[in-house]
């Protein structure tokens, strides 16, 4: 599969109070972003579990990201910081097994940032296109010292 016709599958775990609303706003603003993103709504990114992130990869997602509120603006005080920690932890796990931690990312945005939501979607699709299909879907595993 060449880089051109590879369409990444990406799962976005979105907080109900920011990124999920931002996605809605992106729609209202008629912004264009790649159709590779599939959204799973959570009440707060603090609900996201390493288990969920890994299962998404296991199911064949080439990339996964968590989109929560701006730091300090979490609707539930500090859920997004907990999510950040878990994403960092999961990235480490993915690196250890040669999967590539950069397939997973945490983003912050507010409900007003429809444009940012579309940007993040584009950014993530471009990144995953460069990385190629996930090792689970027959892509290359990453060895130490491999360039991104």
């Amino acid at each position: 599969m060449s880089e051109d016709d590879f369409e990444p599958k990406i799962v976005a775990f979105c907080c109900h109070y920011c990124a999920y609303t931002a996605a809605d706003l992106a729609g209202s603003m008629r912004l264009q972003y790649p159709p590779n993103i599939r959204i799973i709504r959570l009440p707060c990114t603090g609900k996201v579990d390493v288990l969920h992130l890994l299962r998404a990869f296991e199911d064949g997602a080439d990339g996964v990201y968590v989109a929560g509120c701006m730091e300090g603006d979490c609707h539930f005080i500090n859920g997004n910081f907990r999510a950040k920690k878990r994403v960092q932890y999961a990235k480490k796990l993915l690196d250890e097994i040669g999967f590539g931690g950069e397939r997973l990312e945490m983003f912050n945005m507010s409900a007003a940032m429809g444009t940012r939501f579309a940007e993040v979607a584009k950014e993530m699709v471009e990144r995953i296109k460069k990385l190629g299909p996930s090792p689970i879907r027959g892509g290359k595993t990453k060895k130490d010292g491999d360039a991104l």
Binding site: L42, D49, L51, H52, R55, G60, I136, R137
Partner: peptide, 20 residues
């Protein structure tokens, strides 16, 4: 409404195992 089985089922439904 956001039990682990529900969130995991969503993951499975999006990019189901058959496709892998």
């Amino acid at each position: 409404y956001f039990r682990d089985v529900q969130v995991l089922a969503k993951c499975d439904a999006l990019y189901g195992k058959e496709e892998v």
